[in-house]
Amino acid sequence: MARPTPELIHALRVTAQKLKNGTHYQWGHMGGCNCGNLAQELTKLSKDQIHRYAMERYGDWSKQVDDYCSSSQMPIDLIINEMITNGLTIEDLKHLEKLNDREVLLRLPLEKRYLKHNVRDDVVTYLNTWAGLLEDQLLQKIVLPSINDLQPA
C-alpha cells in the first residue's frame, strides 16, 4: 500500500475532483485513464505527453509497470519513478488501473464495492476512498504528547 503523505493524499483528491468536474477521461488512453490522470497531477505532464511516452513501449499501465526499470531512462519509466517517489507502489498502480485494491474496496459499503474500472464516477469514488484510507493511516502515525509529558515552564 502507498506511503501515506499529505502530498499524495492531496494529489488523489485533486485528481478525483478534476475527474468529477469533467476533465478528459478515457480508459484506453494512457494519459487520460485512471493512472494517467493521477500521473498528470503528480508529474505535471499533459495527458498527451504521458500517452506519447507510454507508446514508446508496448502495453497498458499494468504491462508498463511490469516492465518498469528504475534505472531506465525511458520516459514512461521516469513517470512511473516519479509516481513511486510520491509514495505509490507498483501494486498501487496496477490496482488503480483496475480499481481493485482490497483495502480500498473494504471501506465502501458492500453494495458499492463492485466498481467498474472504466467508469469515471467509479474512479472518483475509488480515489476519494483511497485518499481517506491513506489519511487515516497518516493520522494514526501522529502521536501527541500527553499532559504528563509536558514540562512546566
Results as ranks from 00 to 15, higher is better:
Asp67Cys: 02
Thr85His: 11
Ser46Pro: 07
Leu108His: 12
Ile79Lys: 03
Pro6Arg: 15
His51Arg: 12
Asp67Ala: 00
Met83Asn: 10
Cys33Gly: 14
Glu111Tyr: 02
Asn100Gly: 12
Asp48Ile: 01
Glu91Phe: 00
Leu110Glu: 13
Trp61Lys: 00
Glu7Arg: 11
Gly36Tyr: 08
Asn81Ala: 07
Leu42Ala: 05
Gly31Cys: 05
Ile80Tyr: 03
Leu108Cys: 11
Ser46Trp: 05
Ile9Ser: 01
Lys112Ile: 02
Arg102Ile: 09
Leu108Tyr: 07
Tyr25Phe: 15
Thr43Asn: 07
Ile9His: 02
Thr85Arg: 14
Ala11Arg: 01
Asn21Lys: 12
Asn21Gly: 03
Pro109His: 12
Glu103Pro: 00
Cys35Arg: 00
Arg57Thr: 14
Ala39Cys: 04
Lys63Val: 10
Leu110Phe: 06
Met30Trp: 05
His10Trp: 14
Pro75Arg: 08
Arg107Asp: 10
Ile79Gln: 06
Leu110Arg: 11
Glu111Pro: 02
Glu103Ile: 00
Lys47His: 12
Thr43Cys: 10
Gln17Trp: 09
Gly32Lys: 14
His29Gly: 08
Ala16Gln: 14
Gln64Glu: 09
Pro109Asn: 13
Arg113Phe: 09
Glu91Gly: 02
Met83Cys: 08
Leu93Cys: 01
Met30Ile: 04
Met55Trp: 02
Leu88Asp: 15
His51Met: 09
Glu103Gln: 04
Lys18Thr: 07
Ala54Gly: 11
Arg113Cys: 11
Leu19Pro: 11
Ala16Met: 13
Lys18Pro: 00
Gln73Phe: 00
Val104Leu: 06
His10Gly: 15
Gln40Asp: 01
Leu88Gly: 07
Pro109Glu: 14
Leu8Asn: 11
Glu41Ile: 05
Tyr25Lys: 14
Leu106His: 09
His29Phe: 09
Glu7Ile: 03
Ala11Val: 02
